[in-house]
Computed example of a mutant assay.
Amino acid sequence: MAAALSCPVLPLASGCSVPVLGLGTSHQGGYSHDAVVHAIQNCGIRHIDTAKRYGCESLLQKAIKESGVKREDLWLTTKLWYSDYGYENTKKACLESCERLGVEYLDLFLIHWPDAQVPGRSNREVRAETWRAMEELYEKGLCRSIGVSNFLISHLEQLKEDCVITPHVDQVEYHPFQRPQELVDYCRSRDIVFEGYCPLAKGEALTHPSIVQLAKKYGRTPAQICIRWSIQNGIVTIPKSTKAERIEENCKVFDFTIAEDDVEVLNGLHDGRHVSWDPSLVV
Rank of each mutant, 00 (worst) to 15 (best):
A39T: 06
A223L: 13
S17R: 03
E249H: 00
L142N: 06
Q213E: 14
V18Q: 02
T257A: 00
K65H: 08
I48F: 04
G120Y: 01
F109P: 03
S67E: 05
R121T: 03
N123E: 05
I64H: 04
I235H: 03
R53G: 10
A51L: 00
K160L: 09
D162R: 13
Q178R: 15
F177A: 10
L110I: 11
G120L: 06
D49K: 02
Y218V: 00
N89G: 09
K92S: 08
E195R: 11
L142E: 00
P176V: 15
K202I: 14
C43R: 09
Y197F: 15
L59D: 12
S122W: 04
C163N: 10
K160F: 07
S149Y: 05
E57K: 01
Q181N: 11
C98F: 01
K140W: 06
K92G: 07
P8R: 02
S32Q: 12
R220V: 05
L80S: 05
E66Y: 06
I45R: 02
A133G: 09
Q41I: 04
A93N: 10
E161K: 13
D191M: 13
A3F: 12
D34T: 13
A39N: 02
S14N: 00
H270P: 13
T257Q: 01
L101G: 01
E204M: 15
I40R: 07
N267Q: 08
E245L: 12
S14Q: 00
L214M: 06
I192F: 05
W81H: 10
V164F: 08
S276D: 12
G141R: 02
G24F: 04
L281N: 11
P279T: 06
Q178V: 14
T25C: 03
E125D: 15
G15Y: 04
K79C: 02
F194N: 04
T166F: 06
C163H: 10
Q28S: 10
E96H: 07
W229N: 06
Q28H: 05
G234D: 01
F194M: 13
S149C: 10
C163D: 11
G86T: 15
K65T: 13
G102A: 07
L10K: 15
L159N: 00
L12F: 08
C43D: 13
K79V: 02
H274D: 04
I211W: 06
G203P: 15
Y87G: 14
H208D: 12
G272Y: 10
Q41D: 04
L159R: 04
S189L: 09
V193S: 06
V172E: 02
